[in-house]
Each structure stands twice: as C-alpha cells, then as structure tokens.
Design a protein around this nucleic acid. Structure first.
Lengths: 110, 110
DNA sequence: GTCATGCGCAACTATCCGGTTGCCTTTTCC
DNA sequence: GGAAAAGGCAACCGGATAGTTGCGCATGAC
C-alpha cells in the first residue's frame, strides 16, 4: 500500500480550506441549513460580510462550495466531492497506521 | 442535529495542521512507515531538516504526533485520536448535508 | 580521543492570510 | 422615482507561517 494513494498535493488544499475556524463554521452552517445567501450567512458570523465573502471564495477555490446569482443575492451551497476526498485521505492514513501497528505488534511478539 | 456537534473550534486546528502539503506528506510517511527519526524523514523531503522539525512541532501542537528521544535521535510517531476527530467532523458535515438534500427533494416533490 | 551524525536554538526573510474600511453597482420594494 | 438591501472591488494593516542559514551541543562509531 503506497502513500501515493493519499495524494497530498490534491487533498492538502482541501484541509487548508477547512483549517480556519470561521470557515469551518460557515461549512457547518451550509451543511446544516442548506444553500443560503451571503447576508444570511453573515447574520451571526461575528465577522464582516466582506470577510465572509472572502472565506466563501476560498472554499470555492478549494472546490468545497459553489455560488449562483439569484436576483440581487448570491446563494452558496456545499459541494460534497472534495469532502469525500478528504475523508478517503483520512481513512487511508488511519488504515496504514493500523497496519503498521499490527506489524510492530507481531514483530514484538515474535 | 445541531452544528455544535462538529466542534469547529477543536477540529479547525487539526485541519489546519493537515492543510500544508509538506506536512501532509510527513503524516503520510509516518502512517506508512511507522515511527521514524527526523533525519530519516528528511531524507526525501525536499526541504531542510529544520523545516521538517518545525512541521513536526506543528503536528505535535495539534496533537497529531508525538516524539520520544532515543539515543541521539528523536523518534516521531502518529497519534490517532485527532485523526478520528477530524473524520467524525467530516462525517457529521456529510450527514447533515445529505439530510438537507433529502428535505429539499421531498419538498420539491411535495 | 576524534570525528561524523543527529538535533535544537536563534535570527532573518518573504509571503500569505484574516480582517477591516470605503466606495460603487445592482436589484428590490413602496 | 427613490430609499434600502445585497453584494462586488480595491486598498490597507498586522500577524502568522514556511522556509532558509548559521551555530552550538550531545551522542554514537572507530
């Protein structure tokens, strides 16, 4: 099992996008409430609307979110594929680590 | 199902630690090869030993890795709990998002 | 004893990043 | 038509961060 299957170059930007507290809160709100506008996201966000906008663009650049203009507001929704990629990456790491622990254990018992 | 269960304040630093390509490579190597020294990690790391050391300390600060001095070398190993926390966070987001999609679908069909 | 290896510490640099303020355009509502 | 709401664009700031180089200290090999 090669570490190449984890594709760090692809998944690292996804983790980086999730690695900010404000941004992770936005992702959580979008996942819980469904698609919503920037103003609605800003309502209880503790930061400015422009900050929220920047975070949304970061998420979009990582493929995690997507926007559509609807009248005068822009509605943002989550994109599930990158989330799945991140999950697969973590699963791979855990699996490899478990395998290593097993090997070490049997080696010691040997 | 509340978004509070995702605990962004706790999990965001973990994602941030995984959000650097060099660091994610280190995690992948540790998970695939088991505990190893800094020099061994540096061998094919494309950056300096000091850079690797800094990254390891970042991982340690996020609870993802742990070191033990063994003679003149310091051996680093992965810590699985934060990885599991990150996985649970992603699972929660995906589950919430799926639930929202279901609600929207039945709403449209209604 | 001596030399190479492994590592930590400190200083320095360049860049990125999160957040703000200010201003302007578009759309809705009355 | 005019006020207000939603949002884009740009400039700016302070702090974090990824990386380097240089040096000194222990430990293991011979």
């Amino acid at each position: 099992m090669s570490a190449r299957r984890l594709k760090p170059k692809i998944t690292a930007p996804i983790f980086a996008a999730l690695g900010d507290e404000t941004r992770l809160r936005i992702v959580a709100r979008l996942s819980a409430g469904g698609p919503m506008s920037i103003a609605h996201l800003t309502r209880d966000a503790s930061v400015t609307r422009q900050a929220v906008t920047k975070h949304l663009h970061v998420l979009a650049h990582a493929g995690l979110a997507r926007s559509a203009r609807l009248g005068r507001e822009s509605v943002w929704e989550l994109q599930p594929e990158p989330l799945d990629a991140a999950r697969r990456c973590l699963d791979g790491i855990s699996a490899q680590w478990d395998a290593v622990l097993d090997r070490l254990k049997t080696f010691v018992e040997d």
